[in-house]
Amino acid sequence: MSGHGAEIVTLPKINPADAIPADKLVFTAEEKAQLQEYKSRYPEAEGAVMRGLWFAQEKFGFLPPEVIRLVADELGIEYARAYGVATFYTQYYKQKMGKYVLDVCTCFSCQVCGGYDMLHHLEEKLGIKPGETTDDGLFSIQGVECLGACGSAPMLQVTNGPYVFNLTEDKLDALVDSLRSGKMPPFTSVTLPQDEEEMGGNRRSDAAAVATYQTPPVAGAVE
């Protein structure tokens, strides 16, 4: 039988169509300067590898080996070191993902508040399983571990960016529709329940969208 080790991350085969053409596989002078700025923040160049990989992922969308090498060369560190880091952390995409990656939290607080119902609703709506991407390349979905927003369970994160709290099926439908039209969800500020009584619930006047505390929807069945 197979071993029980922590998941061994083998790099997925990259679809030739997704390969980044050689002439695109470069950093501009400005981007190089940014990478050097990251490097200057740490006493050793290796410290900047995580920021460097983030930076490359934002530019190229994912981190195939040639992009990892590009980052390593730019920072002047070993390729193996950068490769080891890129394959250790879950937020680095090892293969091309959909334009919008919906990371649905299913960890224990979200689990008991219906996180799996939300994930299954997305599976049905988009016709894909967790880890897959829709044919039009728009959406990928994943069930992920705790995202640190347990008081607003169930919730999800869009492409390592904005959080969407207190999910319902209707809210998911609206989210998918708005993403299809190219509109990302706004930053949402979740205030403390105590703020509601002491200051009307709104702490920030600068947040694009301030969601004061709201009673979450009735918990779905435990999956």
Binding site: S109, S152, A153
Partner: peptide, 14 residues
């Protein structure tokens, strides 16, 4: 205190 789960008003409380 970060309280989550099956309560009426989950959230962070000081």
């Amino acid at each position: 205190y970060g309280i989550s789960g099956h309560v009426n008003r989950p959230g962070v409380y000081e």
